[in-house]
Simulated scan of single mutants.
Amino acid sequence: MSDSTTEPAPALPDSAGADARKLQIALVDDDRNILTTVSIALQAEGFATRLYSDGETALKALLDNPPDLAVFDIKMPKMDGMELLRRLRAHSPLPVIFLTSKDDEQDEEAGLELGADDYIAKPFSLRLLIARIRAILRRAEPLVAGNPALPTESAPASLVRGRLFMDPARHQVTWDGQAVSLTVTEFLILEALAIRPGVIKSRNQLMDAAYPDDVFVDDRTVDSHIKRMRRKFKVVDNSFDAIDTLYGAGYSFTDG
């Protein structure tokens, strides 16, 4: 397979430029069958698709012209999905879903810690993938405001808790005035904690806040997002300890 952008099956050609109002999904996988099958399914659901067969080609395209969401395979030649996500996260909070091997929990945990918003194990259901994509796009709505493919609501108010500032409408977070770049999932988990400082939120409650569409995720998903969030805040404040762990109960935010 060539290293250039992969085109879908001739019966349903790439639709990225056909309708600017459509939400764009980038698919990155070295398996042409998966690219074609997933692209056809997404286009049938009204999405535009951009297809890439390797991480190197995808990285430049995703940074130069970001889509609304990307789906990465992990095992790819030249640049695997882990490295692609690591490099992407240095510059962009683009929502990302990882496709992982069915039994490789290490891949799942590593992907979440690098900043993936979600993961799906292969072999996967197209219905499940589309449901996860729609769920993340609804959560990321402020980032694609004005796009008629998603319903719009009045922008939520900003949130101030001690040194923490959150602006949901702009997907902005600062700590002591310094910017902290969070993924969509991380933002929603932090917002759920910061709305009621000192109140313990169970993992199930945090999963409901970050995944409000009855999408099943397990406990380690929330734990991995919390761990990565803490690391990000410690970059701007090494003494950051506002997210408390209460073993067996959940997490809480302290703004004191």
Rank of each mutant, 00 (worst) to 15 (best):
I133R: 09
H171G: 07
A140D: 15
P168D: 11
I136W: 03
D118G: 01
V160W: 04
A157R: 13
L129K: 05
L114M: 15
A121R: 15
L129E: 09
R170V: 02
G115K: 05
A121M: 04
L159E: 07
P142G: 07
L129G: 10
T152A: 12
L150N: 10
A140Q: 11
G115M: 05
G162H: 01
L137C: 04
P168R: 12
L129D: 09
A169W: 02
G115Q: 06
R132N: 04
V144S: 15
A157V: 09
S125G: 00
G115T: 09
F165W: 07
A145H: 09
G162A: 03
R127Y: 11
Q172H: 11
R138E: 11
Y119V: 05
F165Y: 13
T152L: 08
L137R: 04
R138Q: 12
L143F: 05
A169N: 00
R163S: 09
R170I: 01
P148L: 00
N147W: 02
P168M: 11
L150I: 13
D167H: 08
P142A: 11
P168I: 09
L114K: 14
M166N: 01
Y119N: 08
L114N: 09
D167Y: 08
A116F: 03
R163G: 08
E141M: 11
A116V: 00
P123I: 11
I133V: 15
R134I: 03
I120D: 06
L126Q: 15
P148G: 04
L143K: 12
D167C: 11
P148R: 00
L150K: 15
A116N: 03
A121V: 09
D118H: 10
I136F: 04
I130V: 15
A135E: 08
S154L: 12
D118Q: 06
V144F: 06
A140R: 10
L112E: 00
R127N: 05
L129H: 07
A155H: 05
P168Y: 02
V173S: 03
Q172D: 12
F165M: 05
L129Y: 14
G162I: 01
L126H: 15
G146E: 07
V173M: 02
Q172C: 06
A116P: 01
L159F: 07
L164G: 07
G162Q: 05
A155C: 13
I130C: 02
A116R: 03
N147H: 09
L126F: 15
S158Y: 09
L137I: 06
R134Y: 03
P148D: 04
M166E: 00
A157M: 06
E153T: 14
M166L: 15
Y119E: 04
E141F: 06
K122Q: 12
P142M: 14
L143C: 08
P148I: 01
R132D: 02
L159M: 10
R170N: 10
